[in-house]
Design a protein around this nucleic acid. Structure first.
Lengths: 355, 355
DNA sequence: CCGAGTATCCAAAACGGTTTGGGAAAAGCG
DNA sequence: CGCTTTTCCCAAACCGTTTTGGATACTCGG
């Protein structure tokens, strides 16, 4: 069925135009050796001139690969949050896909239909690889994708799953250990943790890192100083307000995102306190393009790792995996930088106490 | 060529299993009338049991439609910013696509290759409709897509283009006129505008709205109070700092995004001023899921319009257009709400002046 | 009981590429 | 020069659907 739309010239037409067979034209364009160099040149030239583009669907049908990678964005029914790091990760991955001539297909789906979405995408052969976003503990998507027998790569990890799978993650645990250590070194003892929701794997690891550091110095962890919430400015604000009103308030905050940190800053202002002098804050910084942590000198001291770069790397890894699925589960752990900004300083309480 | 991967059962196999022809099975599944009801039932049942999923590529090839909509995300080479409203828009659109059984394919591309990306997506038949993001003045993508003869819908508009095309936009101009009016009503006369980059169409319209309101009350617009920049916290902060240091500083700010507004708030704190008392702020609020404007009572007084809802609507409109391209250019202008928050109050300067 | 409908089903031809299995001409070799 | 390779090209099958154009059997009015 032809549509009014000019779908471009077809391979057969191009061949006809050149007085060649479709076979030869196809081979010429795809760089196969069994075609004379000047013929190839003629073909390439004609293809460019008539701006021929091979029909993706026909091509995939014939070759068996879709030349596309799938991403499923779960939109939780409970908390309607679209993960803010998502856009940057996608941007990074997209660059890699573009370079490799792959398409990216996105599916937005409610939590409960998620498995169905994966089955569909794979079963209908729409994609030949998948990226898993926002893994949780014992994430059921991992066994599912293994069962579907399609190359996939997890952005993050899923603690509790021992079977091997491919992933790219940042070292959340060490990052938060280092950050906590830094605060401890400055004399802080009451350090609050404002974390992301702890069904997310990264949040669990960050808490572990935080607890590790406290324990190593025999500082008792106070449950009242630990909160897990959706990472929004409002939640950061509220958590910080509540804690600052405590009898024994924290002198430092370790938080899981810049948005949370902005909320904490807000709370400090409301309380008439000075960021980096009265209270210190270290945040994780995904280096989002629209949420830069200051400019020349960073606003917040932070554990930084570019999620966009992670997107690029993840896509590259997955593409390799698609090209050669046997190259086995591949993993990569990125270390985070601890960058010094203007939100940290020595603990005033300790000075005051000694005074 | 068969791969190791279990691509699922094929229509032919399903037919064989049932002792029917592929024709009949196809018809049974697609609801054509020329098949006996009990046969249809048998087919449906078997399809479910063997969990048959029609191969998308084969289906599209046969039908001529891709069942997919394309989005091109331009990633400017200059300013590496991924538009923050993008994620929410996509989430909304994705919901609509999912409902309609469409896929969403994303292409990330540098500004200069953008035309090429559109030509590719259309020419290779990967999508049968496109959404245009972030239109600028005289946006070249609009004539391009018209030339490519594919249904498309612009999220926003492109001033300067008179030929009809389909779009969904919010009434930026009226929104900013109303916001400015509100500030004027409170006695503010020196009202700063911190806008998005003015090659973006929405930013132009917002400035027009702002200027309209000033002119209607014969308030002279001061170029020193108008700035256009990428909408980040840092830029909001810097712009506000600079203006607050002026001899004749603004008593109110009208800003184009919550992130900018947060930057302004930051600057006010630094200057020791109180938001909503010393200085008023009205912002535009895209109602982003990860950047809520407070909760019960909004933090900022704002012109609000959910970009996620816009995504849903835009997708629906485009799908209608794809189903019936002749249904002609369709347009929709959404009005914005002016919601009252805690960031506005009467102009203190005027009181002081009268005192 | 017969011919015209009608209800069901099917074989085969698309869709636009890739890939297999030759085949003719040119080149290499003794 | 004859024979084997190699080079270059092609016809046809295939990928997994939909759709066209019948075919067959059944129904029904007369």
């Amino acid at each position: 069925m032809r549509f009014g739309r000019e779908m471009g010239i077809t391979l057969r037409e191009l061949a006809q135009d050149l007085g060649l067979s479709p076979t030869t034209v196809s081979r010429a364009l795809n760089g196969y050796p069994e075609v004379a160099e000047d013929t190839r040149w003629r073909v390439m030239e004609a293809a460019r001139r008539l701006n021929y583009r091979p029909n993706t669907r026909a091509k995939s049908l014939a070759t068996g690969r879709a030349q596309a990678i799938g991403h499923v964005i779960p939109v939780s029914a409970k908390h309607q949050i679209v993960n803010p790091v998502f856009a940057d990760f996608i941007a990074g991955a997209g660059e890699s896909y573009a370079r490799a001539g792959y398409d990216m297909v996105l599916t937005v789906v409610a939590d409960d239909d998620e498995a169905q979405a994966y089955r569909d995408l794979v079963g209908r052969g729409t994609v030949d690889g998948m990226i898993v976003h926002g893994p949780r503990q014992h994430d059921p998507r991992i066994p599912l994708l293994r069962e579907l027998d399609i190359p996939f790569l997890v952005h993050g990890r899923s603690s509790g799953i021992t079977a091997p799978y491919s992933w790219l993650d940042i070292n959340n645990r060490r990052g938060f250990t280092r950050a906590t250590d830094a605060l401890l070194d400055m004399g802080h003892r009451r350090i609050a943790l404002i974390n992301g929701l702890e069904d997310m794997d990264f949040a669990i690891r960050r808490r572990e890192g935080y607890l590790d550091a406290l324990q190593a110095r025999a500082v008792r962890a106070d449950p009242a100083l630990m909160v897990a919430a959706e990472m929004t400015e409002t939640n950061g604000y509220r958590a910080a307000c509540r804690m600052l009103e405590m009898d024994n308030p924290p002198s430092a905050f370790l938080v899981s995102s810049i948005l949370l940190a902005i909320g904490v800053r807000h709370a400090l202002w409301d309380a008439g306190m000075h960021l980096g002098r009265d209270v210190s804050v270290i945040t994780h910084d995904d280096d989002l393009s629209y949420l830069k942590n200051g400019d020349a000198v960073p606003l917040f001291t932070a554990t930084r790792s570019s999620v966009r770069e992670a997107g690029r790397l993840a896509a590259d890894m997955l593409l390799d995996l698609v090209a050669d699925p046997a190259s086995g589960p591949v993993t990569r752990l990125l270390e985070v930088d601890l960058i010094v900004g203007r939100s940290t300083g020595p603990c005033p309480a300790s000075t005051r106490k000694s005074a």
